[in-house]
Amino acid sequence: MPLDPANSTQLREPGGSRKPLPPWASTAALLVPTYGWLTLAVFLPLCTMFAFSFLTATPMGKAPIVFTFKQYRAFIDQPYLLGVAWQSLLMGFWTTFFCAVLGFFAALALVRATEGKVRETLLILVLLPFWTNGLVRVFSWTMVLREGGFLDYAIHSVWPGAGSVGFLYTRQAVVVGLVHGYLPYMILTCYIALVTIDNTIVEAASSLGARWWTILWKILLPMAAPGLISGSVLIFVPVIGSFMEPRILGGRVGVTMGTVIEDQFTQAFNWPLGAALSFTMLAVVLGIFATFSGVLRRGTAL
């Protein structure tokens, strides 16, 4: 059955005579919508806000536009901001600390005490809340922590005479809400780091007579370090910029850099100050990212 090439059917495709677009043109056509959109919605706004941070006041009407560096001196001119910044850093520190401790052991427990389908299911269960609305989860804590809330109810049912232990509208409440929000992140990054540890290493160590705390300190913790560090960065950064959690759970004491910045935009209308504070915070964030970029790349690679 010879196939005669001379009888080959002609291609119907009209492309034969038409020249295709040059590759750079089609590549550009594919990229322009996305990057145009990002420019309009993210990069131009960030540039504008950066320019704003050098203005004396929010431009309104015919008032002349005057450039200044004074917004960046806010921490000197308004010393109360130093206290707020300190509170924000403390909040970031405690949240990260509790996430690290709880998350590391949760990841360790998952890796060492579960396997197969059970482990997979548990991991999904741990991560699922992370993809649900943060606002709703913070609101959930008000139900638990408020005076006469679920926590009080649970304690009174055991010990009827106890007073209220509800601590809504305190800094502790804010930290609890934030830990709840970001714990899954830490469990995931630690899990990724720990799951690669060969079981035989641990067995070898214990066969050599190592106690469990020696194994923990000398083997498990160092090996989980990349996960702990990347988890910490990924938690610390959004936490110091949070404003919704402190407002809902902290009430009047929930004053953080996040809420101060929000106030500048929604209440005080001092947009240049808000912009300067935002960029100061962004500089801190970028500094943290830059410091740990190597670890982050390794720690988050799934």
Binding site: L38, A41, V42, F43, L44, P45, L46, T48, M49, F52, V237, P238, G241, S242, F243, G258, I261, E262, F265, W271, G274, A275, S278, F279, M281, L282, V285, F289
Partner: peptide, 17 residues
């Protein structure tokens, strides 16, 4: 940036621009 920069900053920047 849209993922890593805190939304508070992105959001306020959008508001201004």
């Amino acid at each position: 940036p849209p993922i890593a920069i805190p939304w508070l900053i992105t959001g306020t920047a959008m508001l201004v621009f």
